[in-house]
């Protein structure tokens, strides 16, 4: 009997240890709404790793992979604002702080509080944000929306276009991660 209980405990431990989720096709988009112009960029090649056992969450986003409707906006975004040759990627490394409230073994939608370090344009800031995790079968979707101030990340807006670019940008994250086997 003891052996069965021990085997069950070991098996449970192995299952919990294996609870990692990953995607390389997560979506991150941003929206800048200013009186004269709305600018929208989308990146559907964001990498994300989630450890359901520890609550650790990592995002890696290649700046050059943001896509815009207008070619000129894409050039300005990479060359003038994000300086993507100098700062090729943005990262987030954080932890789910209410991990006990999320049951990765049961399908459902759970509120998730995340705290960690967000690095954009070479500047790292501590951030806390709430979002949701939707568990469905072998997938977990991370959904979150938040605003950042460009000045906080040393992203300068040239005077000539200061009416066209909002000082605050809304960022949406939507990544569906697959459970790793």
């Amino acid at each position: 009997m003891k052996k069965i209980i021990l085997a069950a405990l070991v098996f449970t431990g192995v299952q919990a240890g294996a609870q990692k989720y990953m995607t390389k096709t997560g979506t991150v988009d941003f929206l800048s709404k200013a009186p004269m112009e709305t600018i929208e960029g989308i990146n559907r090649a964001s990498a994300c790793l989630l450890d359901a056992k520890t609550g650790k969450v990592d995002f890696i986003i290649q700046i050059k992979s943001f896509v815009f409707k207008q070619q000129l906006l894409q050039e300005h975004f990479n060359e003038n604002y994000m300086e993507s040759d100098k700062f090729p990627k943005s990262t987030f490394a954080g932890t789910i702080t209410n991990l006990n409230a999320i049951n990765f073994a049961k399908d459902g939608e759970y509120k998730a509080d995340v705290a960690g370090k967000l690095m954009i344009h070479g500047v790292t800031k501590d951030v806390k944000q709430s979002g949701k995790i939707i568990v469905k079968g072998n997938q977990a979707s991370l959904v979150c929306a938040f605003n950042i101030l460009l000045a906080d990340y040393n992203i300068a807006i040239p005077g000539a276009v200061k009416d066209k670019i909002s000082k605050e940008v809304k960022i949406n994250v939507n990544a569906t991660l697959d459970k790793l086997k």
């Binding site: 390389k24 990498a47 990592d58 992979s65 090729p88």
Partner: peptide, 21 residues
């Protein structure tokens, strides 16, 4: 070709090459 990243983060993401359009 937009980026090519070697997995040196220790996250186990492997190497990734990204193409746009």
């Amino acid at each position: 070709l937009r980026s090519a990243e070697v997995d040196d983060s220790g996250l186990g993401l492997g190497n990734t090459v990204q193409l746009n359009y």
